[in-house]
């Protein structure tokens, strides 16, 4: 049963594998064909527009849109719940829509609050 359900995804994995196997030789051939003679340390420096790079490459980076990420975590889950409802809507009785509307109302309230929080730049 589980095998049958998973079996349909086998071809997706096959396609993934085929693309990987078919494209990796391009890198290998490129490595064989291309010139690799003159080597100096400057060549392998990270790109910083001609300047000598300063500081670490993987720096601490201020992610100033943190509230959006929090919203994403909440709304991604909500979207999948909505799909569970929307996919079976034709076979549900009509009054089953009312609790869903209540759920949406609560989520709209939460979203309005989150958007209000994203506007308050002093708390970031």
């Amino acid at each position: 049963m589980v095998g049958e359900l998973a079996g349909g995804y086998g071809t997706v994995v096959l396609m993934f594998g085929f693309a990987a196997v078919a494209m990796a030789p391009a890198l290998v051939v490129s490595r064989m064909v291309s010139p690799r003679k003159r080597s100096n340390p400057v060549k392998f420096l990270p790109m910083e527009c001609g300047q000598v790079p300063s500081g670490a490459g993987r720096t601490h980076f201020m992610m100033q849109y943190y509230p959006y990420i929090l919203m994403f975590v909440v709304f991604d889950v909500m979207a999948i719940f909505l799909y569970a409802w929307g996919g079976s809507l034709l076979s549900l009785p009509r009054d089953a829509t009312l609790p869903m509307m209540g759920f949406l109302g609560i989520m709209f309230g939460a979203m309005a609050f989150a958007l209000y929080q994203t506007g308050r730049r002093q708390i970031w």
Binding site: T11, V13, M15, F16, F18, A19, A20, M23, A24
Partner: peptide
């Protein structure tokens, strides 16, 4: 770093397969 381009193509191909 080597795997990223291959994975990118392979993931796009997996998308195409659907």
């Amino acid at each position: 770093f080597w795997a990223a381009p291959v994975l990118f193509v392979a993931t796009a191909a997996a998308f195409v397969s659907l």
